[in-house]
Design a protein around this nucleic acid. Structure first.
Lengths: 229, 229, 229, 229
DNA sequence: GATGAATGAGCATTCATTCAT
DNA sequence: CATGAATGAATGCTCATTCAT
């Protein structure tokens, strides 16, 4: 299971192996229950080497958070074409998000569960990433308002709240989709669009949001490496 | 801050004191980082008494989850009048929810963060409560469809996904509202209704969801002891 | 299993119930693993009452040892008629001993295993009983020498060693007989007589010790309440 | 009294030091009363190292039992020449046994008292050793019967009982000899031979068992490293 | 006389972390 | 570079024992 014990790897490679192992253990056992012994063993290195490269359990965990946060943000970014309409951008971003979290469940557990649950250096680390995503969504909402040729008479805080709610809904749906067999990233994204864009009111009135036609979408998702359905 | 050290209390009272202390410590430190010593000290009793009454750290944590889950569900229930329209019920429920989580932030941390992060006996404990709420929301969505005179042609799983997303959005917004000074429970509930009921699309088109007039709502909220705005 | 909870018993009776429970628990769990809680529960009384009557765990254990040591010595005494020949007295005493230990295995565990294993106040307590029995056996050996019309040219210490060995052999055989299904007290006593009286040399040469005829023996054993075969 | 605090020893050496300390503490305090703190201190190491090498108190105790059981059996084996007569082999074995138990009283306490008193995994561990010795004695008895040109008409269980009694007598005499100043291993062995081989009957009739002449015996005992008289 | 309430003290066990080689 | 050897500091848990009622 662990990395094959190979001698004399460059430091950067060794560090990535350690982070791989750490993300797996932290994601599965939790931050406190994870032991440095287990991580070192899974990484195929001795414990003192882990300390030499990553200083402490705290620093190691922080490094995990940073690496996985960056990977997630990049995956979402790569899934979105900046030149399409706002709702389309949201649709693409959600697809990339659900695809990435489904592909790396341990990393998602680290970011979504562990980092937020264990207090201070970590919570703000992941909060930074989250704010980046929330800001992206905020821009989308404002862009949508512009597209509708309306000055958004929504106060800034209201927009922030909407973005916050949207991201929270997506996070919850990611956990639900991963736990519910047969739900694909694409379906999860569609549910999100119906919920957030059309709204329950429209939905009940028979006006769901409709996903754009297939061809173009496929390109974008493949660029992002997603596997939407 | 801790309970005043009063001697010789009946068991039921002492148990509640212990649970109070435990919720506070678990909520602030996290399950694993919380020490039974600290909990006992904050409760103003000796450690053996905690074990005599609550058996183990696991059982203590479970008791916290159960008590707070019950309290939360009851707070939401008490805030909702069953004879009003679906959107109105949702509005009232959200108000009660945000008010309760703002009033008991440690309890909310236990339920939302700690219980879900620390694996099995606990996750399913809180999952039970969550399902109760999701089921309530699901009923509201179906009721809304009936009110709109439409047979919901949404597949069952889609409705489940929508309810999941709605609850997740509310959960996220609760954390955001608690962390953002000046955001009241009432405002959070309004944001949620705009987001979930009207939808971003309607919102951008200038059709926000509008909260019902004051008088009736106030009654309901006062019954629940909430402090919406 | 525990004594039926009856109110207002005279102190002497309550004490015996506590000792009964204590012997059972001490015999089965061992001195240290036995908890005062369990003993009090099995005795059907509250823990403070146990302390009121018997002071401490040490005193309670000592009281158990004294009571059971006395009972064992009396059972052996009652099984021996003082007016018969030395080998016959030994035979009767062994029969009574094996019968008693088989009848009260928890008490035997307390005396033979627990009391000797847990250091000072206890070891000397049971050593006193043991010396009484060793002295009895020593007298038998000297009586046998007189019956053989020989001044025992054995030094006193040699006789003490022989008695010690005999008692030790009997103790071992008691454990073995209790653990080996189908071995009766009578058979164990016969084995001991062959071993100790005739000796392996005689035995191998075809000269076993032969137990006396039945009728007289029965009387003695019934007096002692034994069940030798 | 404890090992000199020397740093950085190879694991095998440290393990033996720990076992030395553990045997001493277990033998003197008893299994349950012995604390891992005390053992670690006496061994001159920290507690975590004891756990790193020996896993748990239970495993540590088991390791003690195994090491000392092996040592005892080997001491007896080394003291017996297999080509001499049965009674002579018994004499030599008893001498080696008494010499070994006198030399290592804590180890003997562990095997004879502690291991048997604290239930299962331990009891069967020492029972295995004891059965080895009982089997050896059983063979001696059968060999003696052959030497006397008699088919042993003794039933198998009778022989087992005799062997059990003999071993029990020896065990008791070992405790007695250790506790009685001035009794040598040789004297204890002689008492055992008189008791078990000649039998009290022969002894009283003036026919004691006589130890073999000195020269040959001395050799054997020296081989075993015993100090018989 | 009898008991529910309460605790001081200790114990096995684990873990992040550091040297000496 | 890499590691076997080693530990200080907690932590969950238990138990004999005692009051106040």
């Amino acid at each position: 299971m662990g990395a094959v014990k190979t001698k004399r790897m460059p430091r950067a490679v060794r560090e990535q192996q350690m982070l791989d192992a750490a993300v797996q253990i932290f994601g599965q056992r939790g931050y406190m229950a994870a032991s440095m012994d287990e991580i070192a063993e899974l990484a195929g290195v001795s414990k003192p080497l882990v300390y030499l490269y990553l200083n402490s359990k705290e620093d190691l965990f922080t490094a995990c958070i940073r690496r996985e946060a960056k990977a997630l943000v990049e995956a979402v970014r790569a899934g979105v074409r900046p030149d399409v309409s706002a709702d389309r951008q949201l649709w693409e971003g959600l697809g990339a998000f659900f695809a990435h979290t489904a592909r790396t469940p341990d990393a998602w557990a680290v970011l979504h569960l562990q980092a937020r649950t264990h207090g201070e250096p970590f919570a703000s680390e992941v909060a930074a990433m989250r704010e980046e995503i929330v800001a992206f969504v905020t821009q989308l909402i404002l862009a949508a308002a512009r597209e509708a040729h309306r000055d958004p008479d929504l106060p800034e805080r209201e927009v922030a709240g909407l973005a916050e709610a949207l991201v929270g809904a997506a996070e919850s749906l990611a956990a639900w989709a991963n736990a519910t067999p047969g739900v694909t990233a694409r379906q999860a994204a569609a549910t999100m669009m119906n919920f957030a864009w059309a709204g329950l009111g429209d939905l009940m009135a028979g006006r769901p949001w409709s996903p754009p036609e297939e061809r173009a979408g496929t390109q974008a998702e493949e660029r992002a490496g997603t596997q939407v359905e």
